[in-house]
Simulated scan of single mutants.
Amino acid sequence: MNTTRRSLLKSASAFGILLAAGVISIEQAVAADLRSGFDAKSLTDALKVLGGNAADSKDIMITSPDIAENGAVVPVTVNSTIPNTEEIFIFVEKNPYPLAAIFMIPADTESMVQTRLKMGQSTNVLVVVKAGGKLFSASKETKVTLGGCGG
C-alpha cells in the first residue's frame, strides 16, 4: 500500500487533534510512531525510527541459542543493567522486517524481557536499549539449521 502525502497529512492532523483534545496521551502518540518501524524492510530503515546512533554496551546481555534447530520459535532473553532503562528494541538483522519487538519498561522495574522470535536464516539479533534519553546496543549471532541437522 502506497501512502500518499495527502493521507499522511490527514493522519498527522488527526493525531494532533486527538493529542490536543486529550483523547490520547503523548506516550500513546510516540508508541504509534515507533510502530512504523515494524514496516521497515531493512535494518538501517528500522533503526532510523529510534532517532539516533546507539553506543555498544556490555551492560546488555542477550541469551539465545548458539544454534537454533527451529527458526520458527527461537527463544531470546534480554537483560539490561543500564540504569533508567525505558525501552528495549529487538531486531533480527536478516528478516524481511527486521524490527521484531518493542518493550516499554516501567520505572523502577527489572529490565528483563523474554520472547520467541522467528528467524528465516542464521543472523544477528541486535538489541537497542533506550535509557536516560541515550541509546545503547548489543548483538549476538544465532545460527538456524535446516531440519535440525546441526550447523
Results as ranks from 00 to 15, higher is better:
Asn124His: 14
Gly120Phe: 00
Asn124Lys: 15
Val125Pro: 12
Ala131Cys: 00
Met119His: 07
Leu126Ala: 01
Ser122Cys: 05
Thr123Arg: 11
Lys134Cys: 00
Thr142Asn: 01
Ser139Thr: 13
Asn124Ala: 13
Thr142Glu: 01
Ser137Leu: 13
Thr123Leu: 10
Ala131Val: 01
Phe136Pro: 02
Val127Arg: 12
Ala131Lys: 01
Lys143Asn: 12
Val129Asp: 04
Val128Phe: 08
Gly132Ala: 07
Gly133Arg: 03
Asn124Leu: 14
Arg116Gln: 13
Ser139Gly: 04
Leu135Ser: 05
Phe136Leu: 01
Val125Met: 11
Lys134Val: 00
Ser139Val: 04
Gly133Pro: 03
Ala138Phe: 07
Thr142Ser: 04
Thr123Ile: 10
Asn124Tyr: 15
Ser122Glu: 03
Gly133Ala: 02
Val127Ala: 10
Ser137Phe: 10
Gln121Lys: 14
Lys118Val: 06
Val144Cys: 06
Val144Trp: 06
Gln114Arg: 13
Glu141Tyr: 13
Ser139Asp: 13
Lys143Leu: 14
Val125Lys: 11
Leu135Pro: 04
Leu135Val: 04
Thr123Ser: 15
Ser139Pro: 02
Leu126Arg: 13
Gly132Cys: 08
Leu126Gln: 05
Gly133Ser: 02
Asn124Ser: 14
Ser122Val: 03
Ser137Val: 08
Ala138His: 11
Asn124Ile: 07
Lys140Phe: 10
Val129Cys: 06
Arg116Pro: 00
Gly132Glu: 08
Leu117Ser: 04
Thr115Trp: 03
Glu141Ala: 14
Met119Leu: 15
Arg116His: 07
Gly133Glu: 02
Thr123Tyr: 12
Met119Gln: 09
Val125Tyr: 10
Met119Thr: 05
Phe136Asn: 02
Lys140Asp: 09
Lys130Tyr: 01
Asn124Gln: 14
Lys134His: 06
Gly133Met: 02
Thr123Val: 10
Phe136Trp: 10
Leu135Ile: 03
Thr123Asn: 11
Ala138Tyr: 05
Leu126His: 09
Ser137Arg: 15
Val128His: 08
Arg116Ile: 00
